[in-house]
Amino acid sequence: MENRKYPFSWDLLGDIAVGRPNLGPITRIELYRLMQYTFRDVIEAKFGAEKADEIFYESGRLAGREFFKNMIGKINDFHEFIRKLQESLRELRLGILRVEKADIEQGSFVLTIDEDLDCSGLPESDQEICKYDEGFIAALMESFFTGRQFRVKEVDCWCTGDRTCRFTAEVIV
């Protein structure tokens, strides 16, 4: 697409220390969610719920790729990958990542995120809402298992009455 104004780069996150010398890097979750769900509302209104899910999934993938590149860095094995990811997500208050199943040979995984930034505490509905997380996790897996493509699906969500968000990740290519 031509005439793009803000193709993503890590620099767009800015220099927080310089820019927010008094307020610092921390903000309220409500503000994060205010931005996310207003975006979602407008996108859904303009393009429909299905397209909105797709946009959020792809946005999550882009975020996951950049996160892996800039925050995870070089790792040697799957154990180290999970350990580093757990530490990073907890440190950044994004959520508490846990592994229920990891079949590396078959490329089949089940992960959970407790206290998820996007959904924990949201009112219950019949819809899993963490599409952004799905894309984010898929990109992380694809970054680690270079050359593989994953399909990530949220099967349990706070919004459907669960306490934890559970994701399945399967290799498709």
């Binding site: 846990r98 592994v99 229920e100 199943k101 089940v110 959970t112 407790d114 219950e124 019949d126 349990d156 459907t160 009455g161 669960d162 306490r163 934890t164 559970r166």
Partner: peptide, 17 residues
């Protein structure tokens, strides 16, 4: 779905982890 089943699934998730 719901509170009761969600709690049980969380317990199951913890045990699996």
């Amino acid at each position: 779905k719901g509170f009761l089943s969600g709690g049980l699934r969380t317990f199951q998730a913890n045990l699996r982890h």
